[in-house]
Simulated scan of single mutants.
Amino acid sequence: MTITLEQAREAKSQALTMSRQAAWPATGVGIGQALGGLAVKVNLSSKPRKRLPEIINGVPVVYEITGKIRKRGL
């Protein structure tokens, strides 16, 4: 099944809502590539305490632990 950009955008919106409601340690949510198609990409500041969804409305979700976001010194 090919995932459309509209489907990915809707899943991204739902991921943002879910991350706020469930207090995921998310530092960013976007759209990226996975398994040759579109996916929701969620950056996390730390390992989550509970299992997060692998698919939202048929769109795969990819997680990456990136650490906390900090301002760079110039």
Rank of each mutant, 00 (worst) to 15 (best):
P48C: 14
G30N: 09
R70F: 14
M1G: 11
A11M: 05
N57R: 08
G58L: 05
W24T: 02
A11T: 02
M18I: 12
Q14N: 13
E10Q: 04
L44M: 04
K50M: 11
V29R: 04
T4N: 08
G58F: 03
P60W: 06
N57F: 00
K71I: 13
V59E: 01
S13D: 06
I55M: 12
V42N: 01
Q21M: 15
R51A: 08
R51I: 03
K47W: 11
I65P: 05
S45T: 08
V59P: 00
Q21S: 13
I65W: 06
A34Q: 10
I3M: 00
Q21N: 14
R49M: 07
A11N: 02
Y63Q: 06
S13E: 14
P60T: 05
L38D: 00
E64M: 10
E6N: 08
V29H: 02
K71Y: 13
G32D: 14
L35N: 12
L38V: 15
A8E: 02
R20N: 10
V40H: 00
V61I: 15
I69H: 11
I3R: 00
S13N: 13
L5K: 15
K41N: 10
I69Q: 11
S13R: 04
L16I: 13
Q21E: 14
A11V: 05
T17Q: 10
V61A: 12
K47E: 08
M18Y: 05
